[in-house]
Amino acid sequence: MEIPVPRPSEPAKVFHHSCFAMNTRFSLVLVGLEAEQARALAQTAERHLLACERLMSRFDAVSPVSDLNRRAADEKVTPPDALWEILTLCQGYWRQTRGAFDITLWPLTRCWREHLQRAEEPTDETIQRTLLQTGFHRLYLDEAARTVRFQSKGMSIDLGGFGKGYALESVAVQLRAAGVERAFLSFGESSITVLGSHPHGPAWPVGVGNLFSPQDAVHTFQLRDASLSTSGTAPFNAAGGPRAFGQIIDPRSGRPIEGYRTMSVASPGGMEAEVLSTALLITPAEQRAELLSDFSAVSGVEIVYDSNAGEFVPRIEWKYGS
């Protein structure tokens, strides 16, 4: 929708803050607040994101996630409460998505990344062996003792995408509690959360950019108090080659998705959007509606890029909801 509306008598007060967090860029746009209040809210949000990073980062050797990955195959580990809560949430989503969303796939991700860097694919045998180091069913959460144990050597959890959704959702909660009515939050541009609506329209219109021409929207979501997550965007082998592999791995086959494909999901919650954009991408199209019957107010779009005379042309392959 590109209908210019008349200029308001007073231009909206717009505050913007971007910062580095969780290995990407976070941007916060607040509308209609006094600058001082907006700055304070942005500072609180940034502090919270950095705390989330310290909790969940795989790159930080002393984070609780790194500690868990180092020790949990050998002993029961008691994670901090915040991480315990995240792990139980992930277990719930794993069950709800019939295993399509799984935070234990890092060994496969690493295996494919290392092979593709050498321009080769792992053998079936390697994949089968690596699959034995993955799977949430091998991650034992002892509810009574609040301990975590990996039931296979070499297991490793990765909260990358989910962590961003979790962080966005908690920042949104903080902003609402502070009385903020309109806000636009972006995490690495692939995870968006909005509060309220655009000051000049009924919702925030957010376009899913063409992978090969980001300023062109292939599909536009109308978001109101909702989150949007896009998965499957950056291919492993971005340099090209006859076969493009996405970063998303199917936990059943142990193989990454093929071709240039993205799944964008809008949902009331940031975590849910993150979980579903990943899970739907690897769930066969005919099973997606059934999976989504457990969720309400969700919409989704899958975009496939067809190679046409050396150019990639986007096409909407699958669509759900409004």
Binding site: H16, V31, S264
Partner: peptide, 24 residues
């Protein structure tokens, strides 16, 4: 996309934010 959003907000325009793309 964020720059475009800020610009449209400041000028009272309502248009699509082309942003849901590759993770930066």
């Amino acid at each position: 996309g964020i720059v475009q959003l800020i610009n449209s907000l400041e000028h009272g325009f309502f248009d699509t934010v082309p942003i849901g793309g590759p993770s930066w």
